[in-house]
Amino acid sequence: MFLTTVETTMISIAENILNEARKQPEGTVITARGMLHLGSRAAVDQALSRLVRSGHLMRIARGAYVVPVKSRFGARPPSAKRVIEALAATGGESIAAHGAAAANALGLTSQVPVQQCFVTSGRGKRLSLGAQTLEIRHVPHWQMALKSRPAGDAIRAVAWLGERHARQAFAKLRKTLPETEWQALTSARPLLPTWMAKAVSEAAANETGANR
């Protein structure tokens, strides 16, 4: 069986894409746009599809691919943490834990999220990592003001809890957050919704009054 020139070119482009992809850290997201130096858009798209069919790449979303991780148990998707970190690094946008996960981590709720979910100030998206689905939801810019640091997690946690629980949550956070994080949180009040900024101010005032 003889291959046509087009087929030979396609195989060559696919091999070059795979070679470059395998040099990247685990979880690096591969896109056609990032491989256009290897061929035309149509040729790169076809090569990526060929690599998915052969199992050398996994499609995690439309136009987004990752290299599966090989182990003695077979191939598996990269870890969700690595993929999220790679997306944040290459996309130039902040991605952080969802408010529900942040609230649980900060001890504000015992409720454990069933599904892994993240938030971003950019476009929302849904990723498929094998049997696992990751959702990245768009949130207002103020929720990402302090990015993924503890003070930022506190903002997203209280945003998820809602105005009704804000005063109690911030009173607890005042005692548990490191001083530098609490100061960062209070400094961010001009960026927050009125109800949240007021709750932060009340927690700070109550602490000041208790120390007199």
Rank of each mutant, 00 (worst) to 15 (best):
118 F>D: 05
90 T>D: 12
145 A>F: 01
141 H>Q: 13
119 V>L: 03
176 T>M: 02
147 K>V: 10
107 G>K: 09
47 A>Q: 11
145 A>Q: 08
212 R>I: 14
198 K>E: 06
121 S>C: 05
189 R>I: 00
77 P>K: 10
111 Q>T: 12
172 K>A: 03
205 A>M: 10
90 T>P: 00
185 L>T: 02
90 T>M: 11
120 T>M: 02
116 Q>F: 02
67 V>T: 14
113 P>I: 03
181 E>L: 02
65 Y>D: 08
200 V>G: 00
178 P>F: 00
84 I>G: 02
172 K>R: 10
70 K>T: 14
79 S>A: 14
31 T>K: 14
15 E>W: 04
15 E>Q: 15
78 P>W: 01
152 G>Q: 03
184 A>R: 09
12 S>H: 14
16 N>W: 08
111 Q>N: 12
9 T>W: 07
104 N>L: 10
112 V>A: 05
37 H>Q: 11
146 L>Y: 01
185 L>G: 00
186 T>G: 01
208 T>S: 12
132 Q>W: 03
81 K>L: 05
166 A>F: 03
79 S>G: 11
42 A>P: 01
59 R>G: 10
57 L>C: 09
201 S>A: 15
64 A>M: 15
36 L>C: 01
140 P>A: 08
94 S>K: 08
123 R>I: 06
109 T>N: 09
134 L>G: 08
157 A>S: 08
179 E>K: 08
135 E>A: 13
199 A>Q: 06
140 P>L: 07
200 V>S: 04
150 P>H: 02
168 Q>F: 02
49 S>M: 09
13 I>H: 11
204 A>T: 14
190 P>G: 05
27 G>F: 05
18 L>K: 11
88 A>E: 15
63 G>N: 07
89 A>P: 04
86 A>C: 02
7 E>G: 00
144 M>P: 03
98 H>E: 06
134 L>V: 15
60 I>L: 10
129 L>M: 10
116 Q>L: 09
133 T>E: 15
172 K>Y: 02
147 K>S: 10
208 T>A: 15
113 P>S: 07
194 T>H: 06
150 P>Y: 04
150 P>C: 03
113 P>D: 10
110 S>F: 05
180 T>M: 03
84 I>D: 05
37 H>Y: 14
41 R>S: 14
156 R>Q: 09
149 R>H: 08
56 H>Q: 15
38 L>C: 07
75 A>E: 13
181 E>C: 00
134 L>C: 08
43 A>F: 04
73 F>S: 11
100 A>P: 00
121 S>Y: 01
3 L>A: 07
126 R>G: 01
134 L>F: 11
98 H>L: 00
112 V>Y: 06
210 A>I: 03
78 P>N: 01
107 G>N: 05
115 Q>A: 13
15 E>F: 04
50 R>M: 08
116 Q>S: 11
49 S>Q: 14
4 T>G: 15
125 K>S: 13
184 A>E: 09
20 E>I: 12
174 R>D: 00
136 I>E: 07
164 R>F: 05
58 M>D: 12
73 F>K: 09
121 S>Q: 12
50 R>T: 11
104 N>R: 15
158 V>W: 08
110 S>K: 11
151 A>Q: 06
48 L>I: 10
149 R>D: 12
168 Q>H: 06
131 A>Y: 05
105 A>L: 15
212 R>G: 10
145 A>W: 00
89 A>S: 13
167 R>T: 12
